[in-house]
């Protein structure tokens, strides 16, 4: 009997099974964490100051890095489309494709990734350190729910900040493409802007903003979840930080694919 249970194909199946169960259990834990956070948004006491502080942390202080990313990417995109397009005489599509590329994909995804790198890691490190130094326990014994005081403000602030930042990043990205096209590639400025306006559609903007909101949700959720469940001192905080960023990246890229297929497929 023991020979059967330890034979390689059975062991492989057992491994796959264990992996699947582990994945489902993790999914369940994350879902319960999200549910508890959402409930705690609506339950008193309220901490308006914490919400504003997080908006500043997530949104305002991320603007420089997001702006730089957007302008460089917009300009690089314009150059690539121009070079690629010139092979079949389609250089004139530059403004149109810059609009599509920036607003539909690059704006939200790049902002999501940049903010995930900056903010999900910081959240996991801060909350994780509070966990290992017993500050979370201390907070609970002082009758304050860490979900209300720490986690809900981060989730809400991220879901509000990300759409605002994506709006700004889209505008800066389009401007980057415009700048390169007009100053280097010799496009007519008025013509370029005209085409840009023509191809900039309301539906694309809405999709862009929805994506941003979803990404913000995942960034804060992963940062807080991994921080909250940190175990084992400084090394544990390091692990939580890495896990938060990696899982936020994967969730952003995967949900982006789903949303893109849903909206444009």
């Amino acid at each position: 009997m023991s020979g059967f249970a330890t034979s390689p194909p059975v062991r492989l199946l057992a491994r796959i099974g264990a992996l699947a169960i582990g994945l489902l259990a993790a999914l369940g834990r994350v879902a319960m964490f999200a549910g508890r956070t959402i409930i705690s948004i609506f339950a008193p006491p309220y901490y308006p100051a914490r919400y504003l502080e997080q908006m500043a942390q997530i949104g305002w202080f991320s603007l420089p890095v997001v702006g730089l990313t957007a302008i460089f990417t917009g300009a690089a995109l314009a150059q690539q489309i121009y070079t690629g397009g010139s092979r079949f005489n389609a250089q004139s599509t530059v403004p149109a494709i810059v609009v599509f590329g920036m607003v539909r994909e690059l704006g939200p995804v790049l902002v999501g990734l940049m903010v995930a790198g900056r903010v999900a890691s910081a959240m996991a490190a801060e909350i994780g350190t509070m966990r290992v130094t017993e500050q979370l326990d201390a907070m609970t014994t002082l009758r304050t729910d860490p979900f209300q005081y720490l986690i809900a403000p981060r989730l809400v602030a991220a879901m509000i900040s990300l759409p605002l930042m994506v709006m700004i990043a889209n505008a800066i990205g389009l401007f980057g493409g415009y700048l390169l096209s007009v100053e280097k590639l010799g496009f007519n400025a008025a013509n370029y802007l005209n085409v840009t306006r023509q191809y900039l559609e309301w539906d694309d903007i809405v999709t862009s903003e929805v994506k941003a909101g979803v990404f913000g949700f995942f960034i804060a959720l992963m940062g807080c979840y991994h921080g909250y469940h940190t175990r084992g001192g400084a090394a544990g905080v390091g692990r939580a930080t890495t896990d938060a960023v990696v899982s936020a990246f994967i969730l952003i890229l995967f949900s982006n694919l789903l949303l893109t297929v849903l909206a444009f497929g």
Partner: peptide
């Protein structure tokens, strides 16, 4: 509760730490 490492909130000044149980963080 007095925690082993103190468990003071390092983002808050001392006086807010001391009164945290009264204000519940507000």
């Amino acid at each position: 509760m007095l925690f082993q490492g103190g468990a003071l909130f390092d983002s808050l000044p001392i006086w807010r730490n001391v009164t945290f149980g009264l204000t519940r963080g507000r």
